[in-house]
């Protein structure tokens, strides 16, 4: 079983979201894409578990 959390779990969610937007500020489209890619890889490493990562990949496929 995967441990993917799909209920609210982000501490100070509004602050996090603002940080995410701020991180992209002033970046070109290409720089933003590269930044996102690095971020995904860093977060994936934090999760580590194959099943959880797979569940996250699947969850992201579903739009609403």
């Amino acid at each position: 079983m995967s441990d993917l959390i799909l209920t609210p779990n982000i501490e100070s969610h509004d602050d996090f979201y603002a940080d995410l937007l701020a991180a992209h500020e002033g970046l070109s489209k290409a720089e933003s894409d590269a930044y996102n890619a690095r971020l995904i890889l860093i977060l994936a490493n934090q999760i580590g578990e194959r099943d959880t990562l797979r569940a996250a990949l699947d969850a992201a496929k579903r739009k609403g």
Binding site: D33, A34, A37, R38, I40, L41, I42
Partner: peptide, 13 residues
């Protein structure tokens, strides 16, 4: 394009 972006991200990191 996106596989290159991911590949380059791995190399940068």
């Amino acid at each position: 394009e996106i596989s290159r972006v991911l590949r380059d991200a791995v190399l940068d990191l």
